[in-house]
Amino acid sequence: MPDALLRVFRGDKDGGQSVDYKVPLAPGMVVLDALHSIQAHQSPDLAVRWNCKAAKCGSCSAEVNGRPRLTCKTRMDSLPLDQPIVVSPLKAFPVIKDLVTDVSWNYKVNRKIPAFKPKPGVEWKMDQRDVDRVQEFRKCIECFLCQNVCHVLRDHGKHESFGGPRFFVRTAGLEMHPLDSVSRIPLLKNEMGLGYCNITKCCTEVCPEEIHITDNAIIPLKERVVDEYYDPVTMLFRKIRGS
């Protein structure tokens, strides 16, 4: 088998450089295998975050040839090997070391979202039709590729005022839950900045779990915000019904 040339970012929050490594290819090899090979044979200090190696833990997110990917799910034979394979850390988050980024901002956003609160005296029984939608959102593995690709965070750096696709998915799962009693619509409009999203669908394109983030989570939430804040007829009906 021939060798592949990997161009891997090495550095920390103060900067760094891309370093080239030649790695022998093996059948079925994924980018994470190549990074492990570098660790084992060339640079034992190369920092890579990983855990399950089965595309289920969401730890090994990085940018491969400029595309946000799970390195454990990106096969080497799917990449053009006539040029160096560029592996970089997630651009939307600060680098800790090499390919490891500090994603703790996401956990702060998560804490802003009110947890599930059942309606008083609820019967703990749900119709399958009512939970189909929500089950899609539960597939999220929190790899934060959608957060990384979202231009509101990546290019505009709106970390202070925007929640990001991952947390719109989580909020959608709670908002659409048939037994939940809390409204998170004001939170979505104000603190989580749903209006910053201009639905360019990059989050949906990169999701390794193939969650229809834009169509099934973000747009339905935008429509709920319209119900609450921008649709005078719906607002009037709500007022008449006293709800």
Binding site: E63, G66, R67, P68, K91, V149, H151, V152, R154, D155, H156, K158, G193, G195, Y196, C197, N198, T200, C202, E205, V206
Partner: peptide, 15 residues
């Protein structure tokens, strides 16, 4: 996706 935007845009407000 992951392609840079014009650098002159400083006050992005989306929708």
């Amino acid at each position: 996706c992951t392609v840079g935007e014009p650098g002159f845009r400083k006050n992005y407000s989306g929708e």
